Simulated assay, not measured.
Amino acid sequence: MKEIINTYQDNLIYIFRQDQLINPTYRYLVIVKDGTDIIPVEGCHIMHYQEDFESLLKFSLPTKNRKTKQLISLKQCEQLINEITYGVLAFSVNDLPYSVALNHIVLDGHLYFHCAKSGFKLKGINSRVSYLVIRDLGINKEVGTHNHESVAIYGTLKEITDFETKKNALLKLVSSLAPKHPYQDQMVKGTTILELEIDYMIGKSHIR
């Protein structure tokens, strides 16, 4: 994985694992920005963003971004979701679209949310969901556009039941969002911790 990242750096859009592929004849499917020179990496199949990489995956993805010059790198996506700790989770229950604003944390490359032991958002557990994080850069009234950077994340929402994982997530949540609120182990029992198991993320920068 490090070799892929070092090879493609800011041209790297996403890396799919072998277990995400329909016919896993290679370890990783690597997606890079259009126009990037393809440099072979052992065990990898490398494709440009506009190529049909979706047909190689076990799951479906939304339509591609038409303005490919706006795409940001995987590294920039990760930086954004680390810096902007607030987003919108969306899923559908019995054909009812539902979205909710949530805080998140990133811990060891995993995305976690906290919530109460009840609530409609829990109906999204074990479902495919999307999560959108936006950095609002304001409206440019000279040209009539809303400048922003955003990352859309797709995957499956899971409930975390392991005590240590919940504890570690809560410790970071408390230190990041409520540092004056002392952590206690009893909080683990009274809080639901959800993880978004990430299948894919894609980001863009719209600045004019």
Results as ranks from 00 to 15, higher is better:
70 Q>T: 00
70 Q>D: 01
70 Q>A: 00
71 L>I: 09
71 L>M: 13
72 I>W: 07
72 I>E: 03
73 S>R: 07
73 S>G: 09
73 S>Y: 08
74 L>C: 02
75 K>G: 05
75 K>F: 09
76 Q>F: 03
79 Q>I: 12
79 Q>N: 12
80 L>S: 02
82 N>H: 13
85 T>Y: 01
85 T>N: 13
85 T>P: 02
85 T>K: 14
85 T>D: 10
86 Y>I: 12
86 Y>F: 15
87 G>C: 13
88 V>S: 13
89 L>T: 04
90 A>H: 05
91 F>E: 03
92 S>V: 15
94 N>A: 14
96 L>R: 13
96 L>M: 11
97 P>R: 07
98 Y>M: 04
99 S>H: 12
101 A>R: 08
101 A>I: 07
102 L>C: 10
102 L>S: 06
103 N>G: 10
103 N>F: 14
104 H>W: 08
105 I>C: 07
105 I>N: 05
106 V>H: 08
107 L>Q: 12
107 L>S: 09
107 L>E: 13
108 D>V: 04
109 G>L: 00
109 G>Q: 03
110 H>L: 10
110 H>E: 15
112 Y>D: 08
113 F>S: 07
113 F>C: 08
114 H>P: 02
114 H>V: 07
114 H>T: 09
114 H>W: 01
115 C>P: 05
116 A>I: 07
116 A>C: 03
117 K>E: 11
117 K>D: 12
118 S>A: 10
119 G>L: 05
119 G>F: 04
120 F>M: 11
122 L>V: 04
122 L>F: 07
123 K>Y: 10
123 K>G: 09
124 G>T: 12
124 G>V: 12
125 I>P: 08
125 I>T: 11
125 I>K: 13
126 N>Y: 08
127 S>G: 03
127 S>R: 15
127 S>W: 01
127 S>Q: 15
130 S>T: 01
130 S>D: 01
130 S>K: 02
130 S>Q: 04
